[in-house]
């Protein structure tokens, strides 16, 4: 019994270590990102409940993402907004191919350097979107813009950041 508690604690510890990847996986599947925290919580609870079935030494992230994947699909099955979601077939394919994209370490430092190069208003918009979890419509209303501008600006900001990170990585390697 004691071993079981220890094992569960170990699995929970792994979850904590990998939480940003698991969260990342969920975010990637949830348009708008509204129920991400709930799904992450459910994943955590299931992982705790099923800790016994996790074998030490095997790939924890893969196991956890499988559980998160199950939670996501379960959520979609209940969801009322089906029309605004990708079809199951595509979702399954995407998730099949997810693993390889969650192996690298996130380049947070590079991202921060690149964020510094954006204009303050764009940085503020990203903060509203990601730190506060605002919907683009709310950001738009707050800033006195059209929602479309916000969507376009967010897209453009991400593209700029990707490009900047890519350049920084190149520069760093040289």
């Amino acid at each position: 019994m004691k071993d079981e508690i220890k094992h569960t604690a170990h699995v929970q510890g792994l979850f904590v270590k990998e939480v940003s990847r698991i969260r990342g996986f969920i975010i990637s599947m949830m348009p708008g990102g509204s129920e991400v925290d709930d799904l992450l919580q459910e994943t955590f609870l299931t992982i705790t409940a099923k800790a016994g079935s996790f074998e030490k030494g095997t790939n924890f992230t893969a196991w956890a993402i499988t559980i998160a994947r199950f939670k996501v699909m379960e959520h979609f099955a209940k969801s009322k907004k089906r029309g605004l979601l990708l079809g199951d077939e595509v979702l399954e394919r995407l998730m099949d191919e997810a693993q390889e994209h969650f192996s690298e370490n996130p380049q947070v430092d590079l991202l921060k350097r690149c964020l510094g190069k954006l204009s303050p208003s764009v940085r503020q918009m990203l903060a509203q979107r990601y730190a506060r979890g605002w919907k683009p419509e709310k950001i738009a209303a707050e800033a006195g813009w059209g929602a479309n501008s916000v969507y376009v600006s967010l897209s453009r900001a991400r593209t700029t950041l990707r490009e900047c990170i890519r350049r920084q990585m190149k520069g760093g390697a040289a």
Binding site: S20, R23, G24, I27, S28, G33, L94, E97, A98, H101, P106, Q107, V108, L111, K112, L115, L126, A127, R129, Y130, A131, R158, L161, R162, I165
Partner: peptide, 17 residues
């Protein structure tokens, strides 16, 4: 799709910190 998710997740990660 996953490439864009990378930056999307990275932003989420960075701003949550």
């Amino acid at each position: 799709y996953w490439k864009i998710c990378e930056i999307h997740c990275l932003l989420d990660h960075a701003f949550a910190e």
